[in-house]
């Protein structure tokens, strides 16, 4: 499957929660949710306001899929790679692939 064509809704809650576990903590140098939000095109004030969110990673993901049309699972993965967060890509890839598989199976049923 082409991950670039799989919309973000394919990712279910457990994957999103896990993404939060990796991205919510602030890092001194490495990329955290703020760097991801910036890569997604959010401006400084928007990012600053996400700070009060309990789970900023989840909020940012939802807002990204709501306001941009070219979001996809593949795009999210390539952003994480570009931000040098290969740890997330490596650890969560099996979970993400499983969600994508379920999403595609559901599409076929309809």
């Amino acid at each position: 499957v082409d991950l670039e064509k799989i919309p973000l809704v394919a990712l279910n809650m457990s994957v999103r929660k896990k993404l939060g576990l990796y991205l919510n903590p602030k890092h001194t140098v490495a990329a955290d949710w703020m760097a991801l939000a910036e890569a997604m095109g959010f401006n400084y004030l928007e990012i600053k306001n996400y700070e009060v969110s309990k789970n900023p990673t989840c909020t940012v993901l939802e807002d990204w899929q709501a306001r941009t049309t070219d979001t996809s699972v593949g795009k999210l993965l390539s952003m994480l790679s570009e931000l040098d967060r290969e740890d997330i890509v490596e650890d969560l890839r099996p979970l993400i692939d499983e969600d994508v598989r379920k999403y595609c199976a559901n599409l076929k049923k309809k």
Binding site: Y22, A30, D87
Partner: peptide, 11 residues
């Protein structure tokens, strides 16, 4: 601790 967190994001 912070260094291990930060460096830990790599392989």
């Amino acid at each position: 601790m912070e260094l291990l967190n930060d460096w830990g994001t790599t392989k």
